[in-house]
Write a protein that binds this DNA or RNA. Structure first.
Lengths: 229, 229
DNA sequence: TGACTTTCTGTACGACGTACATATTGTGGA
DNA sequence: TCCACAATATGTACGTCGTACAGAAAGTCA
């Protein structure tokens, strides 16, 4: 995938791996996860579709690399500050993850689709477990609690964006007349408009998200200053 | 989709909607969510591919109906018993959901992909909120807490099945990255056993699942007998 | 300059969802 | 009894997808 920098022979590359990931992310944001295609990426970059396969072995690898880059962009500094209370550190991480994922709703399914075992994914879990360990949890409990937190954050956002897609999809799929005409809807294009209702739902789910997170942290921490056990 | 029973004229149907869903579920179980195809369903039933469109307007409708049927098969009796403690009732529901979803791993993505607004999905959430309300929570808190529980159950199983199917992906770079990252990170963080049998990981995650559920219930219930607030 | 290496492109195949026209098959009214 | 009709199945076709394969471009180095 990545060539060694010492080796420089042959025809120069027309694009970069990052440009491919940028194009993929662009398609992800505009059309949803289903509309990310190798051909679309290539068209956006002005190269032949199969030229992508010199950078990544297949489409799944592109999506995995996109997830990895996404997780690598998460700012660790905020919740790596050991001066802050551990609850605030965890909440900072959760909120940052949520903010980034809501900005790219299609990425949630990619996160939940793969096994999340890339370097950045593991480092993120490691950091999260470190926060809990700093607060006094055993290594085992910290690992378990970090898993619970990851599950909650990803699950909550997955359900949230699934509900947001509802407004877009029902309009097209409620037209259930047999042999419905194709000119009314094109299944490949989503409008994804930001209406006021979506905004309201967004803020509501933010509150709901924090409510759940707070109560989960309560459950993970029997005493106010320390997490589980 | 469903014809009225009074109206019976025309050529009789060759199959039933349930048979189509059965075929779809079969494909889902054998090949994963990605390998469910209209053509495959039709081939399995011995009909032409486009004959499916007599029963459902499109493929997405088939999958939605499959999810709805799946949720409808969840046994409500176990956790509708008001004699049992509310924690046991919730745990019974969560474990039943988990058991069913682990039996059909591909269904998890379908559940998280859609907005979960079908009748059975709503009834399930309502039943769950009812349990919490029975235990003394306000209607608002019961709704919020049920949301948290749904998020946890679905998210946990999604991550679990995502970790299980690491075999279908290209192994070349996956193994290298995993080894590289696992060496740098302490094994106590998250012991994802690759060499051991799937049953071991399965039981481990079952235990992990219950651990998280217990602690979340602790957080939702400040006092041992009542959930949030 | 010419061999070599890497990358890009042209072309092609099979699978997919599904629209359209047409054939098939049962039923109720004549 | 027969025929028009309605509901369903099929034949065919189009556009899109991922991606495999062979060959053409475009640099570097001897």
């Amino acid at each position: 995938m990545t060539q060694s920098p010492n080796r420089r022979m042959g025809r120069p590359r027309a694009v970069t791996e990052q440009a491919i990931l940028d194009a993929a992310l662009s398609q992800l944001d505009t059309g949803g996860a289903a509309s990310v295609s190798v051909r679309g990426i290539a068209a956006q970059l002005g190269i032949a579709p199969n030229a992508v396969y010199t950078y990544f072995p297949n489409k799944a690898a592109v999506l995995r690399a996109l997830v990895e880059r996404f997780l690598g962009e998460v700012n660790h500094d905020r919740f790596a500050d050991r001066q802050m209370p551990w609850r605030e550190r965890v909440e900072a991480l959760a909120l940052e993850l949520r903010t980034r994922l809501v900005a790219h709703p299609g990425a949630v399914h990619l996160l939940l689709g793969g096994p999340m075992d890339g370097p950045n994914a593991l480092m993120l879990r490691e950091s999260l477990a470190g926060v809990l360990a700093d607060a006094g949890a055993t290594a085992d409990d910290a690992a378990r609690a970090s898993y619970v937190l990851v599950v909650y954050v990803l699950g909550a956002i997955a359900l949230e964006v699934a509900g947001l897609d509802h407004a877009d999809l029902t309009e097209s799929e409620r037209i259930t007349t047999r042999r419905a005409t194709l000119d009314t809807i094109s299944t490949t294009t989503y409008p994804r408009t930001t209406s006021t209702a979506a905004t309201v739902a967004k803020y509501f789910t933010t509150e709901q998200f924090l409510w759940g997170l707070t109560h989960i942290l309560n459950g993970l921490a029997p005493t106010p200053e320390a997490p589980a056990r």
